[in-house]
Amino acid sequence: MDSKFKINDEVIVDSRSSTGHCRTPAYIRGKKGIIERICGRYPNPEEIALCKKDPKIVTLYRCRFKQMDVWDNYSGKDSDTIELEIYEHWLNDA
């Protein structure tokens, strides 16, 4: 199955809240970044945590964010970055 995004695409992490187990930290929700690489397809941890049978297989991306875009009053350098792994259902077009 094709992945929705390709390398260097601009994306925004969904800013919805969540209940239960989830691997998208609060601090990155709503932030804009780019796709750094496509990691492959993995069972959705949100469903594994609930012991769902045959959890949905989803594409996982590594995303790169400028620290200046993530934190208000970031004290480091403009060039500093942070990279996280985000599942496709948490990513929107920028």
Binding site: T24, P25, I28, G40, P45, K77, T81, L84, E85
Partner: peptide, 15 residues
């Protein structure tokens, strides 16, 4: 050094 980029990796999923 200030001239270096710092890249933080939040190891939050399957890598």
């Amino acid at each position: 050094p200030e001239s270096k980029e710092i890249k933080v990796h939040d190891s939050n999923a399957d890598m």
